[in-house]
Write a protein that binds this DNA or RNA. Sequence first.
DNA 1: TTGATAGTTCAATAAACATTGAACATAGGG
DNA 2: CCCTATGTTCAATGTTTATTGAACTATCAA
Lengths: 125, 125
Amino acid sequence: MSRTPHHPTREQIELPMVLDCLSDPIRLAIVYQLAQQERVSSELRCSDFSALSGKSNLAYHFAKLRDCGLMRTRVAGTNRFMRLRREDLEARFPGLLDAVLSSAAKDADRLPLVSGCELVEVDRK
Amino acid sequence: MSRTPHHPTREQIELPMVLDCLSDPIRLAIVYQLAQQERVSSELRCSDFSALSGKSNLAYHFAKLRDCGLMRTRVAGTNRFMRLRREDLEARFPGLLDAVLSSAAKDADRLPLVSGCELVEVDRK
DNA sequence: TTGATAGTTCAATAAACATTGAACATAGGG
DNA sequence: CCCTATGTTCAATGTTTATTGAACTATCAA
């Protein structure tokens, strides 16, 4: 297992890949909840999303989110903390992420969201 | 052949379908060029994009663009004129289309665009 | 060192997708 | 009325995708 997973540079972020990544309801829900949580902690663990799907399927989606440049994964012990690459996305495609997020917010009832009380991240390392 | 192809209502437009539609480089290029052309004519024929792919493949992509609510097709004789559903998209997902379009503009060199002089739409019916 | 926890990787599978060419439908011009 | 131009539909093909479970790796804590 590589110590730090691969992330594209800012310039390597491609628009079609980003849109494709966001077009999957599970991944869109992950990105949306990550954004929702930003005012609290800005990072969530993989396991915080375990209500959405199985571990291996989530790992697959997380890899796609990393590969397209939407999220960054920080390894801390046996946990991996995910955060949105807001600055990079804003620099690359100004306004895009916010437009997608507010669109997702309008249709939040159509997203497979983890219920709020399941997201109780407090302790960080 | 049905006289008028199927189009979703404004409320039926779904975010994941729209993003998925825009994630294909050919479809993104079609939408982008349609937007570019808006100040001139707002409509383009299918055959205006023949440089992008074969007829049947374009018909496939046009159908997806219609099905997800991004474009409307108007039948006029043997031609079909396509136009962006700007108002519907703006009402449904405010700011999204413009954010995608300006992102596409930043990366226009990475899109499979039809060269400008091939888009010489003048006569309309 | 043993066991539990957190994630990744791999192989297998079914569904969806993009692309092609051939056949078809429709309208307009000689 | 034929011929052509414009698009659609269908079947076939190969590719990519999402999902699953099992096996694996790494870290932490007792």
